[in-house]
Nucleic acid binder design. Sequence first.
RNA 1: GGGCGGUUAGCUCAGCUGGAUAGAGCGUUGGCCUCCGGAGCCAAAGGCCGCUGGUUCGAAUCCAGUACCGCCUACCA
Length: 565
Amino acid sequence: MKDYREAIARIVGETLDVSGLDISSLIKNEEGGERGDLALPCFVFAKQMKRNPKELAEELAEKFAGEERFANVEAKGPFLNFTFDAAWLSKQVLPEAVSRGEKWGWSETPAEKTVTIDFSSPNIAKPLAFHHLRSTSIGNALANLYEALGWRTVRINHLGDWGTQFGKLAVAFLKWGDERKLEQERIKHLLELYVRYTREAEDDPSLDAEARSLFLKMEQGDAEALALWKRFRDESLNEFNRLYGRLGIRFDTWDGESYYNDKLDDVVEEVERKVGTEISEGATIVRLDDLDIQPVLLKKSDGATLYATRDIAAAIDRFERFSYDLSLYVIGAQQSLHCKQFFAVLEKMGFDWAERLVHVPFGWLKGMSTRKGQVVFLDDVLDEVMELSRKAIAEKNPDLPDADKVAEQVGVGAVIFGDLVNWRMNDVTFDWGRILNFQGETGVYVQYTHARCRSVLRKAGQPDLNGFDPSRLDLPEEKNLLKLIGAFPETIEESATKYDPSKLARMLIETAKAFGRLWNMKEKGYVFLEEDPDLRLARLALVTATANTLSSGLAILGLPAPEEM
RNA sequence: GGGCGGUUAGCUCAGCUGGAUAGAGCGUUGGCCUCCGGAGCCAAAGGCCGCUGGUUCGAAUCCAGUACCGCCUACCA
């Protein structure tokens, strides 16, 4: 469908003397009313040719007279407005959108490229909090987007599973740990122990000494100490996997900080050899003055490594294992400097693939002050939202089979979509009211529209759409929907290359709205289950294509699309 | 002090590779169930697009400056 841009550019190029201009990028989408579906402002041509833009627009309009893809091309002042021929548009988008089913919009050919996505990456021994959702949902959506483009994806959960805090936790566990509580409360018990440790260590400095020595034992491979650490890690992973399962998210590797721990000395040595390091105030640093970036610390003055060191090691290791064409880091915007720094070190080390590393930053989650310990657990948010959707189902669709499962799908969908629908750099304020809102531009709305589509198709007895006549769809409202369905593959591509799932989320909302308008035209006598068999088949094809767009798009964003709700 | 990000309707946000009267959702007010699912649809009210300059035929969009908010700014991640 996209080739209309090239077609317009070609005809304009043949008509006017406008060499050197990228004509197709001047074409703007319009709403489909008075201004048609596309608009081409002629000011730029006028300037180059030193002529009146109105005249040029009129001149051009005539040249498009015979084009089958446009029902109308007319000059409105200095603008040239194009209106798609409905039958042409329908023929371009519907057959494919129908036949590709749930994979509509996905690339049919492998891209032969690999992308790694480092996302979520929580610290172990603490429950996942609501703020972890940002990296998790954005990263997952990006992975799905690239998969849809045919890329091979490697989903990496770079666990924070090493460091002195595990010495502290071990001390706390040995002193106050309760096997039965651990059994029942799992990871929350670990958090409780850690909180207690922090409190008691304020009055009793000997605890810190104990913790240091216990962590040292872990580093030296002491079996008992490591067994404790492994327990914390296993316990955490169980818990994380349960939650990721709820969210429908999986990872390909869980290699975190502990995995890289014994590789760091070699990496520091390699940096030293290739780039050169310096000792400053006892710490090992790399200067990046030439790039106007502050120095990176590779080792503290006590010899311990830092997270820059680990990220350098991880980038090298991942390239050796996956030879990625692109490596995304879905990490908060606070860490922009950190990313800039370790990317720069890799570049200076002479790795030509360093330019493939991309930081995908996102804004801050406000309104959850950790200093008061007021973290909102992700689990609790999901429970709350699921409860609400369960009530909604009981009220609106009490006979729904599998109501619990659907309630979970709707609840989880509401939370994920709410996180993805806005530009990721915006800071967001935690607000129960917004999370629990199922009206308007929400994931629930998109899921609901999809369920309505499926409902119509069920009522139609899952029709065989073979041989439907696309030219029977010619209403403006149908055309608006067709345009959106047709733009779906491009939207996927744009969302992926801009690392911006919100583009796709918003396009799905537009699609749902366009469908909703058609649905409510039944007062005017418009129904999908039309009596005329040919018209009915064409409309059902449109419903199918809408359902495919919504379910495929929702799946890419990481939300389920229930058949009924 | 320096760096990065942000500032659009009461609230939450689209629009930002410059184009024709600045859009949506929530909330408010008022409509729409003989008819495919009302978690829906339609409509109204609501805006010096932070401020000041500049570039341009044309600026919410680009440039400079400025105010306010947030984050980062060497041994946490």
